[in-house]
């Protein structure tokens, strides 16, 4: 009897089943909150989508004037204006994000390779924490440097006066634009990619590298054929994460992208890169004073819904890309 009671004293006061229940409830609450938020966004966004149909994603008219008309729509709910063709916003997002990721990826890969394979130990010790710090710099700091230093510099040195004058009636060109937005986005997302890719490169088993060397394959080929090949799933993950961050970046882009709703025309040659853009997330920031007007609020919710869906598609695409790459990996 005494033995039994002493065993009871040693037993945990709360059985583990209880803890499981608590944790489960916590996780379920969190998931419910997220699901509720998603449902709310889509519900609010619905009038904008239902009014425009698929044309919402198309082009036509001046998107800036359309947003202004939505803001100024009459107070009577029956007379709300919803007409919107959001193509310039989508196009601006695609351009800035795409350029930043396309230029940033090779840059990040080469930096990671240098850090892991070639840098002397002292430099390695410094570079790793510096990269992690850069990945954590608040983007508004980059935005501030962009708008105060880089935009005036581009305006002075890259924008030709004649081009500026030619287009002045249609679109203001002032330094901030596709080029600056993409460059600062790239600076923002490259450290994230370097951190992920270099972790993966460091995790490549040394036995594979040695095995390749023992077959008489030189260091350079070994690096590409064994290390980078093995790190491919991590590279895909890095691209997904970086793209997601670039998609969702709002404040910084609102500062440096030119603040004018415009779809840059590739036929303008190099000036294409100097024309202003207005990405989706930056639009939400730019239009925030108009939230009080119900239809504008609903339109902004529609933009938010598009961003949410693209993030979801992005995660899924990342997963799908990794599947064939995992085929030969150890189980």
């Amino acid at each position: 009897m005494s033995a039994l009671s002493s065993r009871r004293r040693g037993a945990p006061r709360r059985p583990p089943e209880r803890a499981e229940l608590w944790l489960g409830a916590l996780a379920a609450t969190l998931l419910l909150l997220i699901a509720g938020m998603l449902a709310f966004v889509f519900k609010e966004a619905w009038p904008s989508f239902s009014h425009n149909g698929l044309a919402w994603f198309g082009s036509g008219g001046n998107t800036g004037q359309q947003l202004a008309a939505i803001y100024e729509s009459p107070a009577n709910p029956d007379e709300y204006v919803y007409h919107l063709r959001a193509w310039p916003l989508l196009y601006g997002t695609l351009l800035s994000t795409g350029l930043a990721v396309l230029i940033g990826l090779p840059f990040a890969l080469l930096c990671s390779l240098f850090m892991v394979e070639f840098a002397p130990p002292g430099l390695k010790r410094i570079m790793t924490p510096v990269v992690r710090f850069l990945a954590a710099v608040p983007s508004v700091v980059y935005g501030l440097i962009g708008i105060l230093v880089l935009a005036p510099w581009i305006d002075r040195h890259l924008v030709s006066a004649s081009f500026k004058l030619d287009v002045n009636a249609i679109v203001p060109v002032s330094g901030g634009g596709l080029l600056l937005a993409s460059i600062i986005l790239m600076v923002m997302i490259v450290p994230i990619m370097i951190a992920i890719i270099s972790d993966a490169l460091r995790a490549v088993p040394r036995s594979w590298v040695e095995g390749s060397a023992a077959l008489g394959v030189n260091r350079w080929r070994t690096m590409w054929k064994v290390s980078v090949r093995t790190a491919r799933p991590a590279i895909a993950a890095a691209v997904v994460l970086a793209t997601a961050r670039a998609l969702g970046e709002a404040i910084m882009l609102a500062m440096v992208s030119g603040s004018f709703i415009w779809a840059p025309n590739p036929l303008d040659g190099l000036n294409f890169f100097l024309e202003p853009i207005m990405p989706l997330a930056a639009t939400i920031v730019g239009q925030q004073e108009g939230f009080s007007a119900v239809p504008l609020g609903q339109t902004l919710y529609a933009i938010a819904a598009v961003l949410l869906v693209s993030s979801a598609i992005l995660s899924f695409a990342g997963w799908a890309v990794r599947q064939p790459l995992r085929k030969y990996a150890a189980r």
């Binding site: 036995s207 095995g211 023992a214 077959l215 008489g216 064994v226």
Partner: peptide, 22 residues
């Protein structure tokens, strides 16, 4: 040259280390 040498004098390791390929 080290790559030539290693092609002529090859090595098998303690732990099997096939590459993650076919």
């Amino acid at each position: 040259e080290v790559t030539t040498l290693r092609k002529r004098v090859s090595m098998v390791f303690q732990q099997p280390n096939p590459f993650p390929m076919s």
